[in-house]
Amino acid sequence: MHKLFKRYARAIWLPATVLLAVVVAFGLLQRHLPPAGKVIGVAVLMVCYCWVGWAEFRHLQGMDEMRRRIEMEAMVLAFIASVGVTLAMFFVNALKLARVPFDVVPGVLIGCYVLAELWARLRYRYWSL
């Protein structure tokens, strides 16, 4: 396995696994929780998300300039695309052109990020982490 991929996997596996476990547990249990339990669940979910973000940020700081440039381009493109798509979904829903359920928004945001990463990697023909 590639040295950089091993370093990335070592940095991200625990926060990502805990986040995934919390998302699944919260998704299964949230109907049975009282309002205070739901607030605590959301707080735990956000703490786990921040942990994953911090691990990603630390990984970004350890990259060389080329990898950092690719990652930053992908993040900016993902931000622009996700805000645009979210605005479009909001107005489509607000103008009653179609019903857009709020549940699709996280998937759309993640999709924007994945497509932006692929675009940046294809643009530079650079596939290393």
Rank of each mutant, 00 (worst) to 15 (best):
S82H: 10
V100Q: 14
A88F: 12
F102L: 14
R125K: 12
G84V: 01
L95D: 07
A116E: 05
S128Y: 13
L77D: 10
R99A: 13
M89N: 08
L77K: 08
V83W: 00
V92H: 12
P101K: 14
L122N: 09
G84N: 03
R125L: 11
L77V: 09
L122H: 13
Y113A: 14
C112L: 05
V108A: 07
V76M: 05
W119D: 14
V105K: 09
W119I: 11
T86V: 09
V104F: 08
P101M: 15
C112E: 07
R121L: 13
A88C: 06
V114F: 12
W127M: 02
P101S: 07
F79N: 02
A81G: 07
V83P: 01
A98H: 07
V105S: 01
F102Q: 13
T86N: 12
R125D: 15
L122G: 01
I80A: 00
F79H: 07
R123E: 04
M89K: 03
R125I: 14
A94C: 11
P101Q: 09
V92N: 15
L109T: 03
L122W: 03
K96P: 03
A116D: 05
A120L: 05
L122Y: 12
W127Y: 09
L77R: 12
L77I: 06
V104Q: 04
A78L: 00
S128F: 11
L115I: 06
P101V: 14
W119V: 14
L118V: 15
V83D: 00
P106W: 08
D103G: 11
Y124Q: 03
E117N: 08
L77A: 11
Y126G: 01
V114Q: 10
K96R: 08
A78M: 01
A116F: 01
A94R: 09
A120F: 12
A81M: 05
V92A: 11
A94E: 06
E117M: 11
V83T: 02
P101T: 07
S82R: 02
G84W: 03
A88D: 07
L87E: 04
W127A: 15
W127E: 10
F102M: 15
R125S: 13
R123L: 08
L97S: 13
A81V: 09
F79K: 00
S128G: 05
L95V: 04
G111M: 10
A98R: 13
R99F: 15
R99W: 14
W127S: 09
P101D: 12
L109Y: 04
V83H: 01
N93M: 08
V83N: 00
D103P: 10
T86Q: 09
S82W: 02
M89P: 06
P101H: 10
A88H: 08
I110S: 01
A116R: 07
E117A: 15
F79S: 00
I80P: 00
V100K: 13
L97E: 15
L109H: 03
L115M: 08
R125G: 11
M89I: 06
R99T: 15
R125Q: 15
V76H: 07
A78F: 02
V76I: 03
